[in-house]
Design a protein around this nucleic acid. Structure first.
Lengths: 242, 242
DNA sequence: CGCCCCCTCGCAGTTTCTGGGGAGTAGGAT
DNA sequence: ATCCTACTCCCCAGAAACTGCGAGGGGGCG
């Protein structure tokens, strides 16, 4: 039975996904998902800008290691393309024109990655970014048919998968956020918009000294080392919005 | 017929949504969606870093104006709560404990917002943030039944809606092409974590002068007035993660 | 009533940031 | 081949921010 004839049952798949009990189990889940959709590979890949990454999926371990070791993260058009997009996208629509990208593609195909691919960008709080990707070996027409048919189910699955992955990801849970006083919020917000302390104080019609007290206070509450750090933390915790 | 008996046809709704031809038409679409689901209100609310906001939905115009004029954007637990979350969330799970939040809620209910609500956070490239929200007047049990039943459809609809809204707002991502270089990202990330320039330079094993060049460069690219501003913008646009 | 937090204001010395300059290498793109 | 970008290093002087010390009034809460 070809992969076009598979009829994945969304309900059952999501139920299984939500019953997952740890990162190891997610690996089992993604293999089951791959089988349910009948494609060659399915991958969840989480990444942040520090270069940390976590992934689970059905690629060869050798390829995964090579990917990490060669720093393909900064070359991979799937990463770059997903980062710029909102909606699911076929790999054909990525920019493969650069030399590095073409070399990467050739290397990938040699390591068992399919010639077709479909990736769903996912974004969470605090700039979290991931993508959920399917890869397969087939012709363009079949792939188009397949992705058209399963697009919505895949969106929902990728969402649930990301939620599960976030749950199991240590250190991604928000710290105990002590709230800021109204004045502190105002002061931090103005600084975050680029005003100097003097300008911000002027805008609030208070002395610069007073404003400084608010900023200091906010810094201490946030456990921040300096103003920039405090603004960054306040933004990250959603305490201020700019 | 109560709102629990409605059987919205996802296919038709999304088809209609994708045929929308402008922001004005999106307003029609959201009213049709509201009627299809049989709830009191449906809202799409887009927010950016500068405090600009765009919304369309079925709230009273008076309430919308009041919301903007009173700066409720900075108080609204729906905004704060969605900003910290990934998955759709019932309003009951937001933090309504602060005095400002309770005053806001009372004001909202007096202006026709329902006592129940369900919000879906949406994030796009470059730190774009929005939420898709339903509000209704009913008891907890009915609302739970309704949201459980329609959760998946609403996720898909909110996605398509956001894509459409993005399409019609090309100016939404004006400086999107101004991405930061790898070194600039590293430098900004370190500053955002509280390090001084000297410490950050040390960590990158470069001279402080060089680091300063990166920071300056990033500042110019981001159109920021100072380092704190630049860090705030980079965080908001999802260019760096801490 | 005392306690704690919030708001407001002040001084002074030290460190850091800002905003100009200039200069050279390497790699990719056109 | 040439241009452009990214990366690395250097100087200087003025402006701004940080650190740590202080003060007092107001409001809510047990």
């Amino acid at each position: 039975m070809g992969f076009l004839d598979k009829v994945p049952r969304l309900e059952a798949l999501i139920e299984r996904l939500e019953s997952a009990e740890g990162l190891e189990d997610l690996q089992n889940v993604i293999e089951e998902l791959r089988d349910s959709f009948g494609v060659d590979h399915m991958i969840y890949h989480w990444v942040n800008s520090k270069g940390d990454q976590y992934g689970c999926g059905t690629y060869d371990l050798e390829w995964v290691n090579r990917y990490v070791q060669k720093g393909y993260l900064r070359v991979d058009p799937v990463i770059v393309g997903c980062f710029q997009r909102f909606h699911p996208v076929d790999w054909k629509r990525f920019d493969w024109s650069s030399k590095a990208a073409r070399a990467f593609m050739q290397d990938a195909i040699e390591h068992g990655v399919g010639n077709q691919g479909y990736s769903i960008p996912i974004r969470g709080p605090n700039g979290q970014f991931a993508h959920f990707t399917l890869s397969h070996n087939c012709n363009d027409e079949d792939w188009q048919t397949f992705t058209d048919k399963n697009r919505r189910d895949l969106i929902l699955i990728s969402h649930s998968f990301n939620q599960k992955a976030l749950e199991f990801q240590p250190g991604r849970t928000p710290e105990s956020s002590q709230s800021l006083s109204p004045r502190e919020i105002e002061a931090m917000t103005l600084l975050a918009t680029g005003l100097s302390r003097a300008q911000a104080a002027d805008q609030l019609s208070i002395s610069e000294h007073t404003l400084r007290v608010y900023v200091e206070s906010a810094r201490h509450k946030l456990g921040a080392l300096n103003t920039t750090h405090a603004v960054a933390r306040a933004l990250n915790r959603g305490l201020i919005v700019i």
